[in-house]
Simulated scan of single mutants.
Amino acid sequence: MGFHTFDADRAEKLEDQSRYRYLSREELVAGLDPDTSDAIADLGSGTGFYTDDVAPFAGEVRAVDVQAEMHEVYREKGVPENVALVTADVADLPFADGELDAAFSTMTFHEFASPESLAEVARVLRSGGRFVVADWTAAGDGESGPPLDERYDRERAVELLDEAGFDVVRADERPETLFAVAER
């Protein structure tokens, strides 16, 4: 896989409302099934497009991105009071074991999905914590998103999650994306 990051110079594209075509706020929040006291991490948060959607349903959200430039754009846009900006690689999260109730990744799984990164996500989630993944699928036609050879299909994504110790409770292959809900 390519393991590249989204170009911060194109960050405005991450605020495009047409992204809801691939994942709605309702589907994301339902997959997380949050409590208003939950600590949730958005892994690969970018400009906070989906972070903002989850924030009203959580106690706190940690917007994790490896690029500080993305956080700068998010600050300019306005960060909700219960959102903390965290500059970190998913393979090295600055959270204690079991500190988070849930985590999610929207169109970024292909950027970090290594055994080491997924083990790190499992480490920071409490037992029973949910990990929701929506990403471009390798089974898609490539009309949007990264090149097909940089994506995972549903089967490979489920395999990676299983290998990291997650129980996959839902995994859908869709025309251009995959959607998975896993529990630690």
Rank of each mutant, 00 (worst) to 15 (best):
V132T: 07
S24M: 07
D52S: 12
Y22P: 02
Q67R: 12
D172F: 00
Y74P: 02
G46A: 10
R25W: 05
H4F: 14
G142W: 00
G128E: 11
F131W: 05
A122H: 15
L28T: 11
V83Q: 04
E111M: 12
Y50C: 03
T106Y: 02
V169Q: 12
P80L: 03
A180R: 03
V86Q: 09
A119K: 11
A96W: 09
R62K: 13
Y20Q: 15
P115H: 04
G145R: 00
T5Y: 13
A88P: 10
E72Q: 13
H4Y: 13
E176P: 01
D172E: 15
V124Y: 01
P80F: 00
T137L: 01
D149E: 14
L148C: 00
E143T: 15
R62D: 13
A171M: 03
L118V: 10
A182S: 12
A119E: 14
G145N: 01
T137H: 00
A138M: 03
L100C: 09
T177M: 06
A11I: 11
L118F: 06
A102C: 01
G140T: 00
F104N: 06
L118G: 05
E111D: 14
A164W: 06
R184M: 05
R25Q: 14
D52A: 15
D38M: 10
S24H: 07
V90H: 08
V168Y: 03
F95N: 09
T87L: 08
A157I: 08
G44T: 10
G165A: 10
R62T: 14
A171T: 09
G48N: 06
L100T: 09
D9F: 07
G98T: 11
R154K: 14
A88C: 10
D162W: 01
Y22I: 01
E81F: 02
R75Q: 13
A55I: 06
A55L: 05
E163D: 15
A138C: 05
E150R: 11
S105G: 08
R154S: 07
D135G: 03
F166E: 07
A122Q: 13
A180P: 07
R62I: 11
D141S: 12
E76Y: 00
H4R: 15
R21F: 07
S114A: 08
T137N: 01
Y152S: 08
V124R: 05
A164G: 09
G31E: 06
T36K: 14
P175S: 06
F166R: 08
F49S: 02
L160K: 13
F6W: 10
D7F: 01
G48T: 09
L23M: 07
E72K: 12
P147E: 13
R130P: 07
D35N: 12
D53E: 14
S18I: 04
F6E: 11
D172C: 01
Q17P: 15
D172Q: 12
R21I: 10
V90C: 11
L23Y: 01
R10V: 13
E12C: 06
R156W: 04
L118T: 10
D97W: 00
E26M: 04
A68P: 11
A180Y: 04
F131C: 09
T51I: 05
E143M: 10
R151L: 02
R130E: 09
V124E: 05
L85H: 03
L118W: 04
E81S: 13
A39T: 11
R75N: 05
A30E: 15
R174P: 04
A134C: 13
D153A: 02
